[in-house]
Computed example of a mutant assay.
Amino acid sequence: MSLTAVREAPTQAKGKAYAALVKALGRGWLRDRSQVFFTLLLPLMFMVLLASVFGSSADSVSRVLTVGEVPVLDAADAGDFDVTAVGDLDEALALLREGEADAAVVQDGDAVTIYPSPTSSTSGSIATGKLSALVDQVNVEVLSAAAPGSPVLDAEVEEADGGALRPIQYLAPGILAWGIAIAGVFGAAGTIVDWKRDKLLRRLRLTPASVKTFLGAKVSVNLLVAIGQTAVFLAVAALVFGLELSPWTWFAVPLVMLGTLAFLAIGVVIGGIAQTSPGAAGLSNLVTMPMAFVSGAFWPLALSPTWVQWLSYLSPMRYLNEALQSVVVYGAPPTAVLPQLGFLAAFAAIVALISWRTFKFDEL
């Protein structure tokens, strides 16, 4: 046997061991009904339920953006609108997409153009109704004054970005991000606790498969699950609820893979702390559920209190949610989500380093 063949033999053996482990761990995941339920079915049920009954509650004061001078608002009551002036229409539409306002208004002479929120159809419709009623009120006052030659305002409603977004168009990315978090955190934490209890990694040292090979196979299975999860979510959202997928939807795959690595790192930390499976499940739930509410998974983040919005900057789920929404719904190219990618990569690296330095595989 040549020297090259001798060197390639261990590599081939490791490759076969890795493939066998991926296959075995994948089958084990499919046979574990609890993992299938919490990873796939539970988030999918949330998406279907919320997309069917979701509705935004509107405040008594509608948040309105004005572009230039809008004299018609001078006739509004003080408590009807919270008015903010912006520089141009593009800025106003961008703020509407982010959920920062309920409507935008532009007035050019007698023409009043109203742009309702594309993020919340309920609050946008309420604000549009108030503004249209205000225009009608001003017209009635002008006519009743019987002033010759007085102009009559004409209100027109323009849908921002070609149409108001339906709930599914911001629920699907958010709940998908939550599902990725559940799969990563719960899967890693519970598995690590079981490994410590059974002293599995210690026993692996006596087999041809190294600990690194085993861990690599486990991470690979989680990444494959995340890709399948993404495909199922987007298929249901598109086929059942009519979600229009952008041409950049394929970039959701690398996004969820990077997000999975970040949440796996959190799960490893929890697995190192917890000593029992119920303890791991409780800590995982304590992390993922508040993170979902803080990160805008169930409603636009801009509708949350200011302190929640500030807290969300620490959550990796916020950045995964924003990136998915940008490429899947808005059709933004990958270059537009580089900040989110950078945060997810840095978060995954830092938390993984912490867990690697502090983790003990054996039972405590």
Rank of each mutant, 00 (worst) to 15 (best):
G271F: 12
A217D: 00
L44T: 02
S246L: 10
M317R: 04
A323N: 06
L239F: 13
L320S: 05
A133L: 02
V219G: 03
I182H: 11
R97L: 13
V328R: 06
F347K: 01
A103D: 00
T66P: 08
V268K: 09
W356V: 04
V83E: 03
L258G: 07
P118G: 08
L311P: 00
T191F: 09
D154W: 07
A20T: 13
L171G: 04
E322M: 05
A237Y: 03
V64M: 01
V294P: 04
A252W: 09
A127Y: 00
L245G: 01
L364T: 13
I175N: 07
V152H: 09
A104L: 00
T249A: 14
L239W: 13
F241C: 09
S284T: 14
R33P: 00
F251L: 02
S52H: 04
P167Y: 02
R205I: 07
V138S: 07
F81T: 04
G279A: 14
K199N: 15
V294E: 12
S2A: 08
V53Y: 06
L93T: 05
V232H: 10
I266P: 01
G163T: 08
P300L: 10
A231D: 12
R7G: 08
S220K: 06
T66H: 03
D88I: 10
Q169I: 08
G187Y: 01
V6T: 11
Y170P: 02
F343N: 01
L165R: 08
M289S: 13
L73E: 04
T207Q: 09
L201N: 11
K14Y: 10
M257C: 14
L93Q: 04
G124D: 00
W307V: 12
S277W: 12
V106C: 07
Q137S: 13
W29M: 11
G87I: 08
